[in-house]
């Protein structure tokens, strides 16, 4: 039916519009506030946030917190990646030693830690172990597990099954099959994923401190609560700066990895 094919996009549009208006109604969104929003953001930025108070971010306390953020990132990424490897192995359909027991358990862990946002992890862990870098690091480890664990296990599931079958046929244990049949195939991909993970963990590390879990986030919270807008602006800019630096670094690192494999 040609009519139907032509109607399709219009129906989709109509459906979308209906949904959007329903959602706006339901969530009580006052669209009038959108009007002039850009102008308002502009004036808020110029009047309240600008100029950023750069002195706030070069004081030694703040620089110390940047260092803390780096420390949590490295600690959590290394630990999280090391934990993600066995989880990925257990949860990969084609390699798991125990499809009925360990695989569902490992998958549940990965999905479970992913389901909870890293900030929520930070809040929960602060309430458990108290303020400080330990809570933040644990939250970041959870984030890292979910982030890298999922990607690791997906890359394992798409490997060439040939070597796996060959090793299995020779009587190798499933750990050996994973180690020799699968790991060499994913090494490259995993190196890329790891670099990407460092980057993502660092991004999260800059803000977990908002709830007292260590690092730069704490300063963001303090200055937001004090409505010290010029300080907030400086902090946000510094966060953007370090994140962009880390992104440049990880892009460079991935390039190096690609070249060393070529």
């Amino acid at each position: 039916m040609p009519d139907r094919a032509r109607l399709g996009p219009w129906l989709a549009l109509l459906g979308t519009l209906t949904f959007v208006s329903y959602a706006i109604e339901r969530l009580n969104i006052d669209l009038e506030r959108l009007g002039g929003m850009l102008g308002r953001i502009g004036s808020v930025l110029t009047q309240r946030y600008l100029p950023p108070n750069y002195e706030h971010i070069i004081q030694s306390d703040y620089l110390q917190s940047v260092l803390e953020t780096l420390e949590m990132t490295w600690f959590a990424t290394v630990t999280g990646l090391l934990l993600a490897v066995p989880l990925a192995w257990l949860s990969a359909r084609n390699l798991t030693p125990s499809p009925l027991l360990l695989r569902p358990a490992a998958r549940l862990i990965i999905i479970g830690v992913r389901a909870v946002h890293e900030m929520i992890w930070a809040i929960i862990l602060v309430s458990l172990v108290g303020f400080g870098m330990l809570a933040g690091s644990l939250a970041l480890i959870a984030f890292c597990l979910g982030f890298a664990g999922k990607m690791f296990s997906e890359s394992l599931e798409s490997i060439d099954p040939g070597p796996v079958e060959a090793l299995r046929a020779s009587g190798a244990s499933s750990l050996q099959v994973f180690w020799f049949g699968a790991l060499p195939q994913v090494r490259q991909t995993w190196a890329g994923i790891s670099v990407y993970t460092i980057d993502a963990v660092f991004r999260a590390a800059t803000v977990v401190g908002f709830f007292g879990a260590g690092g730069m986030g704490w300063f963001l919270r303090q200055s937001t609560q004090l409505v010290a807008s010029h300080d907030v602006a400086a902090i946000v800019l510094s966060i953007m700066l370090v994140v962009i630096v880390s992104e440049l670094f990880s892009t460079w690192l991935r390039h190096q990895l690609d070249e060393s494999s070529a």
Binding site: R203, V243, E247
Partner: peptide
């Protein structure tokens, strides 16, 4: 810029 600012900020 979009990606380097956390959703909370």
């Amino acid at each position: 810029v979009s990606r380097s600012v956390h959703e909370m900020v």
